[in-house]
Amino acid sequence: MTLKNAFALFVLFSTTYTQAQLKTVSYSDENQKLEGFLATPKIANATKAGVIVLHAWMGISDHEKESAEKLAKLGYFAFVADVYGQGNKPTNTDEAGKLSGYFKNAFDVYQHRIQLAVDELVKAGANADEIAVIGYCFGGTGAIEAARGDLKVKGIVSFHGGLGKDLKRETKQINTKVLVLHGADDPYVVAKEVTAFEDEMRTAKADWQLNMYANAVHAFTHKNAGTDNSKGAAYNEKADKRSWEAMKIFFKELFEKI
């Protein structure tokens, strides 16, 4: 066997192994069919903790799937939730804006879709008492909604998510630990929205953290977002790595009770 053929086999094996980590899971919200993706750890952590991964406004992408696989390698059960449902994946940003806007306004529906995903994660073997929710952009907003809705989750992590909340909504006590990972130069989450979020967390008596990453704008974990900050959304390798490490430390505290 030539070195070239051996390398090709290695790549094929590696790709197959990576894809095998994910299992498609069909579930539903009444008449709406949903399709999520489950990543099961080869060796689960001691508490059989699980993590829900919420997608950005364009729907489930490789980004969320890769995150689930990485979480499984860390020993967590991971489930990529389908918030929009089959047949509703946006084909452009206009559609994505309308659909994500609907769920942001109908936050109770959003929270319900997250709960359905939690149920699937528990069915897959995760400990119902050891669940966290993470999300990216629109999904980061969803992670915060899981805390606002008092879903039975121990912690949430929002990666460059929207922080705003309708001022008419009551601020209730938040019992879920909150970690927000935010681009310091994000033009889509203005300073007054950040300040209002901080005030909300204080009023809600939450256990919360807000990490700000220098020179980072919106979507700083998305490698396909380019690197031009002037566009408002761009990848930032340093912020991506730092935010993932912050999440790991948060989970260590959350699930290992250090």
Rank of each mutant, 00 (worst) to 15 (best):
L3Y: 07
L3T: 03
K4R: 13
N5H: 08
F7Q: 12
A8I: 05
L9E: 02
F10D: 08
F10P: 00
F10V: 07
L12H: 07
F13K: 01
S14N: 08
T16D: 10
T16N: 01
Y17R: 10
T18H: 04
T18A: 08
Q19R: 15
L22F: 09
K23M: 13
K23R: 12
Y27C: 09
Y27H: 04
Y27V: 10
D29C: 11
N31L: 05
N31S: 01
Q32P: 07
L34P: 06
E35K: 11
E35S: 14
G36R: 13
F37L: 11
F37N: 12
L38S: 01
L38R: 01
I43S: 05
I43C: 15
A44G: 08
N45L: 15
A46I: 05
A46Y: 13
G50T: 06
V51P: 05
V51E: 02
V51W: 09
V53N: 03
L54Y: 01
L54P: 04
L54F: 12
A56G: 07
W57P: 13
M58G: 00
G59R: 06
G59D: 12
I60T: 05
S61N: 14
S61Q: 08
D62F: 14
H63V: 01
H63C: 03
E64Y: 07
K65V: 11
K65H: 12
E66A: 11
S67N: 00
A68R: 06
E69V: 14
E69H: 12
L71Q: 00
K73W: 00
Y76L: 07
Y76W: 04
Y76F: 10
F79V: 06
V80F: 07
V80M: 10
A81R: 10
A81T: 03
